[in-house]
Amino acid sequence: MTATTTTETARTTGMSAKDALAAVHAARGARDIVITTMTPARDWMLLPPTPLDLVFVPSAMGGAPSMGLGLALAQPNRRVIVCNGDGSMLMNLGSLVSIVNARATNLVVIVFVNGTYEVTGSQPVPGAGVVDYAALARAAGFESVHAYASIEEWRSDVRHVIGAPGPTFVSLAVEPVHGQPGPKSPGPARERARRFMEALDA
């Protein structure tokens, strides 16, 4: 069920981020909340939206897993899936510890590892090709940890992985896409926040 990979493999044989997100999109439950930021946000917005999507654009530095933790604690009967970038994850590694400490069993953190700050022009992130995000998550106390470099394996496992009790951490090795713009806000954040809260009440 769990595929593991080395970072070297991730650099050379990663999957398409768009394909990986499409697999998440297909596997999510109707009541699941999905938070996306940075490259995952840009590509998520190409897929059909739902009222329970929270496109975290504009974002705060690395804040998506923390916002996901808050949502998971406030909405314990929903699954919260956070699609994060590796650069963003590096900005808030402590959030992994906070998530485990809070026993957020309904939270899934998926990190799209492309080794670059893609939205700012594909500068390398610190530790590109060296950092093992799955190992970081294990060291933070995550017990449900998965790593994939193959889209076929990810497609095969995604429904089971995000449906299992968490907190869950997934590292996806994805190919960087150079020359693409960063995600554009899909509209005023205040209005989107209001509509999102209404959707949770519905």
């Binding site: 804040g63 916002m67 808050g70 949502l71 604690l73 406030a74 909405q75 949770l200």
Partner: peptide, 8 residues
């Protein structure tokens, strides 16, 4: 922020 959005 997440807590507030979630109704807490």
């Amino acid at each position: 922020a997440g807590l507030y959005l979630g109704g807490a």
